[in-house]
Amino acid sequence: MTGILGGNPKDEPMHYGEIYNVWQASMMAKGAISAYRAYIFHAGDKDLKKILEALIDQAELEVSECDKLLTDNGIATAPNLPDRPDAKLEDIPVGARFTDPEIFASISTAIATGLVACSQVMAQSIREDVGALFGKYHLTKAALGLRILKLSKEKGWLIPPPLQIKRPEMVNA
């Protein structure tokens, strides 16, 4: 194929939806970094802190890659949020402190939302490199989601929806 949408995908223009999606992904990741850093101060469980650190690492990678993609295409990036000052768990008043189950609920919701968002960007992209980038993020978020699920089961934080323990008997007519 030749023309404006042929050849190297990095040489193709991004369409407005791709630009917005990449910009929004960067902005969401910047917000996530700030929130996850605050959660680390609130978290008491060392395994939860490790997952939060992995989530921060992933969000920082997404910011770096999305901002580079935007910059390479002449698009201004969203501003970074200021760093938070350090805090100690024991200095946070009990009534103002997020509990480990609350942190789990928040990060698991964020992962689920991120998976849907990545799928949408992949479906809307016409540049293969943009679709592949969000496919990579999708796979990483799925793996992190599995880690979060396993941890929540081990710690007793998971509150499942109603379970069908006993199935009604089928009536043969």
Rank of each mutant, 00 (worst) to 15 (best):
A142D: 09
E128R: 14
E154V: 00
K49E: 11
H42Y: 07
S152F: 04
A173I: 14
R37Q: 07
E62V: 00
L5I: 11
S34N: 01
H42P: 01
I148S: 13
D72L: 03
P85Q: 02
Q124T: 10
T77S: 15
A87W: 02
A112E: 14
A32F: 07
K153S: 05
Y20V: 14
G17V: 14
D11W: 07
N172W: 11
Q164V: 15
D100W: 08
A29F: 06
H15D: 06
I126N: 12
I126F: 12
A105W: 05
P82R: 05
A117N: 13
K141W: 12
C66Q: 05
P13A: 05
P160Q: 12
A110V: 10
S34T: 05
V22L: 00
G3Q: 08
A87E: 04
Q120E: 13
Q24D: 13
R147F: 03
S152T: 01
S119G: 08
D100L: 08
E62T: 00
M27K: 15
K88T: 09
K30V: 04
T113S: 13
A132P: 03
E169Q: 12
S106T: 12
D129Q: 08
A110W: 03
G31S: 14
P168M: 13
I111N: 07
G7I: 13
L48N: 03
A38T: 09
S64K: 03
L55S: 10
N172D: 09
K50H: 02
R167H: 09
A112L: 11
V22F: 01
A123Y: 10
